[in-house]
């Protein structure tokens, strides 16, 4: 995170504070929707407001400030997606993925244990079950950031694989692998935390 050091005109400062009060909550909701992390959402709103303040002269008077702020915020979100796929984080999540797969599959890639589905014919009931939804919501939030971003990219915009890979700065084969591992992790998380009543 960074703060403004250069002194800008008091007008632009007042304007930015006005925008923060007017659009801050919407921006925060949007950033949370896109990242599933309240802390990250807060940081992204802060970064966006600071960037807007720093580049206030680029704002064209008369245009909708919300559109301008959202353009900045969306760029910050893409930067965040890319940053979460650093080689360090990929190595760390590879270890988690390998251990997850090692637990689920034998050395030939065959399921080590046949498991019954978590649920029988209760899909509709489960989808309306708030306790189940809360657990799954927590499971999504607990995914490693790069796996979570794959899931979010896939479901949010129904993006094509190539678009998600480009946004996240990963290869397509990495994408399938991450999507597979994310789903395996969600299933494991539900296995551990959810018991059909």
């Amino acid at each position: 995170m960074y703060s403004v050091t250069a002194k800008s005109t008091s007008n632009s400062h007042q304007e930015i504070i006005k925008w923060l009060n007017k659009y801050g909550d919407d921006m925060y909701s949007w950033a949370y929707y896109k990242t599933s992390s309240k802390e990250t959402a807060e940081d992204l709103v802060q970064d966006s407001m600071v960037s807007a303040y720093k580049s206030f002269e680029k704002y064209k008077s008369g245009t909708n400030p919300k559109t301008w702020l959202y353009t900045i915020l969306n760029n910050k979100i893409i930067d965040y997606y890319r940053a979460s796929n650093t080689s360090k984080s990929i190595n760390e999540t590879s270890l988690i993925g390998n251990s997850l797969e090692g637990y689920k599959y034998d050395s030939n890639g065959i399921f080590a244990k046949v498991q019954d589905p978590l649920w029988g014919n209760t899909e509709e009931h489960l989808l309306d079950n708030s306790e189940f939804n809360d657990i799954l919501s927590n499971c999504i939030n607990a995914l490693p950031p790069n796996w979570r971003n794959v899931i979010l990219g896939k479901y949010f915009h129904h993006k094509k694989g190539s678009e998600i890979s480009k946004d996240l700065g990963i290869t397509s084969s990495n994408l399938w692998q991450m999507a597979h591992r994310a789903k395996l992790q969600l299933k494991t998380c539900l296995d551990q935390n959810w018991k059909d009543n």
């Binding site: 801050g24 909550d25 919407d26 925060y28 909701s29 949370y32 929707y33 599933s36 959402a41 807060e42 709103v45 589905p117 978590l118 649920w119 899909e123 489960l126 989808l127 189940f132 939804n133 799954l136 919501s137 999504i140 899931i151 979010l152 479901y155 949010f156 789903k183 969600l186 299933k187 539900l190």
Partner: peptide
């Protein structure tokens, strides 16, 4: 299980979209 997870994740994310959060 995956099909249900797909549907449930989609539903949760749609709900989040409508969720109004406040700083």
């Amino acid at each position: 299980d995956n099909k249900l997870i797909d549907q449930a994740v989609l539903k949760i994310l749609e709900q989040r979209k409508e969720q109004n959060m406040s700083l």
